[in-house]
Design a protein around this nucleic acid. Structure first.
Lengths: 205, 205
DNA sequence: GCGCTAATTTGAACGGCGTTCAGAATGACG
DNA sequence: CGTCATTCTGAACGCCGTTCAAATTAGCGC
């Protein structure tokens, strides 16, 4: 029995994928708060209890959606950078930041779910989360290390986290319609203002 | 009847203040999610319905708590700056940012409630919110305008929002224990790294 | 102080939520 | 096909914010 791929396991895996897709569509269309077990069960054609055979709870399902979103985010950023291989390192930082902004704007609810869920629960982060985050950080660290060739690794790492957090903050508050209501080109200008200040320091102590 | 201060109004106002205090203590101790109407009613010695005579709903009560928190935040930042009147403008920016960081760390749950509530509801922001935010922005804009005396007002405003959002992002992700788990002095170093890059641009185009 | 009306306060009831678990259904296998 | 174990089901549970008919109380002319 152990290790076998039974017909049961196939159905479970199929249901799992179906539920992730349904939840993903719901989050994208109506936001994280619109994900309800009874709606999911009805749309997936299963019983409410079946969801708990495949995921430990609703958070686990949303976590799976977040996994997809995080991978899409990473792909979007890295592919956008890869499209412009002749860019200077300074421009790569801007390209990546704008890619982050545009992904967040184009997938607002899914992007927000990445952070809204993590806040409410206090369980520790799954390892795929840290792996994706590390890959994203590595992507940012590369141009920084090229801009500041004489910086030690830990200083590059600190600047990597600083810039990521800063851009994240700009995007987060910028897209928060009810607070600031900033148009998109102003958010882009803020990112450019931030990064031009940092990269202009190249060659200085 | 209209405009009179009746005994009823006195009791309502007293209950209102009492509920705000109880909710504030609960948020500070256990987080926003621990605020429950039945607990509040029991602790305040009133019926659950009474809460809805004084606030439109639970969000309204948390909004009132957020009002207090926001005012305390503003006071903390402005007083910290006022304690060092001989500081250069560059140091004032660092002082304010660190004051923001330390307030967020020392009042973590209350500070988080400022943003966690706004996200879930889609009603527009009350005017006191915008007023407090404007006062905070004015506090930041002053040293920026001194550092870059030849900048037009809208460019100062853009940099103000850029720096506020950036510092907010650094504090937000830095204090998110489960994701990065950065010690406090590293967060301070990130803020310093960010601001030193910006202020070092003084006098440049 | 008294009685009457309108305003206020009350808390049981309501609808909706995530989660569970006894029982029904379906799998595996000689 | 019979037997047992595994899986699936959906009614039930507990908790939530919110409401509203009924009880209570304030306001006021007499």
């Amino acid at each position: 029995m152990a290790g076998k791929i039974s017909k049961t396991d196939q159905r479970r895996e199929e249901l799992r994928e179906r539920l992730i897709g349904i939840a993903e569509a719901r989050i994208a269309a109506q936001g994280l708060a619109s994900v309800k077990v009874r709606d999911l069960a009805r749309e997936a054609g299963c019983a409410v209890g079946a969801i708990y055979n495949v995921f430990t709870d609703l958070n686990g399902l949303v976590m799976a959606v977040n996994g997809r979103t995080f991978r899409k985010l990473g792909s979007h950023v890295s592919e956008t950078v890869a499209e412009r291989p002749q860019d200077r390192a300074q421009d790569q930082l801007i390209t990546m930041s704008l890619a982050y902004l545009h992904f967040a704007q184009g997938n607002h609810n899914l992007w927000r779910a990445l952070f809204d869920l993590d806040m409410s629960t206090d369980m520790d982060v799954p390892q795929w989360y840290l792996a994706e985050l590390g890959a994203l950080f590595a992507l940012i660290a590369a141009p920084i290390a090229r801009i500041f060739p004489d910086w030690p690794g830990d200083r590059v790492d600190l600047m990597t986290r600083t810039l990521f957090s800063s851009v994240h903050g700009i995007v987060l508050l910028g897209l928060q319609k009810r607070i600031s209501g900033v148009p998109l080109d102003r958010i882009e200008a803020m990112i450019a203002a931030l990064l031009s200040n940092v990269t202009a320091q190249a060659g200085k102590p």
